[in-house]
């Protein structure tokens, strides 16, 4: 049975934890705001890039570029974007589960899946399992840049062009609102033209040729996709952490309330027992 002192100690410890979770929540909220701004700032670039690419792609014949070449898949590469740190609810675990399901799904079709992990958590989970990780980017989510996205994209496109992989996917948490994240699994390569949004009327003058332009723009397009995936993931991470820490803080509150009640009751009990003893002693002396 816990003594009164033990309970008091417990209360103090929960209070300290609550301070930490509350601080983490506020930090996450501040970071979330910044991450959201980064997403907004990056959007026009990505949209425009896509527009131009699609209008270019519709003018050139399929398979004109190695990155658009469709081959029967035997091996696939999955770029898994997780967080570097934990304490953000089910953010990482649900993503990792989704990745595992994907690997199983693909292996049922006799396609072997290798991973490129972005963020430490994905790597932590899969490195002890039977999954090839040709490249891992860890502790990068704090400072994501367009250049870094380029490195990741290059790693994937290089292997795709060398025909080591026939398909490249990306899996990440997409930012919807501060409290909701949606897992997105997208096929990155080969670049398909299905998503075309209708033909564009303008006839361009191409300088240099259409093929050369396409060749220059396609790798950039992949880079932008990876970049937006990372931006989204970071914002979702902060959102998820904020929610998780909010919950933790209110749970701590509840715990403190219950423990305080218990401590008070115990204190009351000891006082009552002491009183009874004194009264009993006095009675005994009288007799």
């Amino acid at each position: 049975m816990a003594s009164l002192r033990d309970i008091r100690k417990r209360i103090a410890s929960v209070k300290n934890t609550q301070k930490i979770t509350n601080a983490m929540k506020m930090v996450a909220a501040a970071k979330l705001r910044r991450a959201e701004e980064a997403i907004k700032a990056g959007r026009p670039f990505a949209d425009k890039m896509r527009d131009v690419l699609m209008s270019l792609a519709s003018r050139t014949n399929p398979g004109a570029h190695p990155l658009m070449e469709v081959r029967p898949p035997k091996k696939a590469l999955l770029i898994l974007v997780t967080a570097d740190r934990g304490l953000c609810g089910a953010f990482n675990s649900s993503l990792v589960r989704r990745a595992e399901a994907f690997i199983k799904e693909m292996s049922a079709k006799n396609i072997q899946v290798d991973l490129v992990t972005v963020g430490r958590k994905g790597n932590d989970y899969f490195r002890r399992r039977q999954v090839g990780i040709p490249k891992a980017f860890s502790n990068v989510m704090n400072n994501i840049t367009y250049e870094l996205a380029g490195e990741i994209a290059d790693a994937a496109t290089g292997k795709f062009v060398e025909a080591e992989y026939e398909e490249v996917y990306v899996l990440y948490n997409s930012f919807r609102t501060a409290v909701t994240q949606v897992q997105i699994l997208k096929k990155l390569l080969p670049i398909s033209r299905e998503e075309e949004t209708g033909p564009r009327q303008t006839e361009y003058l191409y300088e240099p040729s259409e093929e050369e332009l396409l060749e220059g723009i396609l790798p950039r397009y992949v880079q932008v996709q990876v970049f937006t995936a990372m931006l989204d993931s970071v914002a979702s991470e902060h959102g998820a952490r904020m929610t998780a820490m909010e919950a933790a803080t209110s749970n701590a509150e509840e715990m403190i309330y219950k423990l305080t009640l218990k401590a008070n009751r115990m204190r009351q009990e000891t006082i009552t027992t002491e009183l009874m003893e004194i009264v009993g002693g006095a009675e005994a002396l009288k007799g």
Binding site: V52, L56, Y204, L205, E207, P208, L213, G216
Partner: peptide, 19 residues
Amino acid sequence: PGVLGEFGVLIGHTPMLTF
């Protein structure tokens, strides 16, 4: 600064795509 040399654009330029 285009890859094929610097170019100037005024209104009514022919639609063009370049590096």
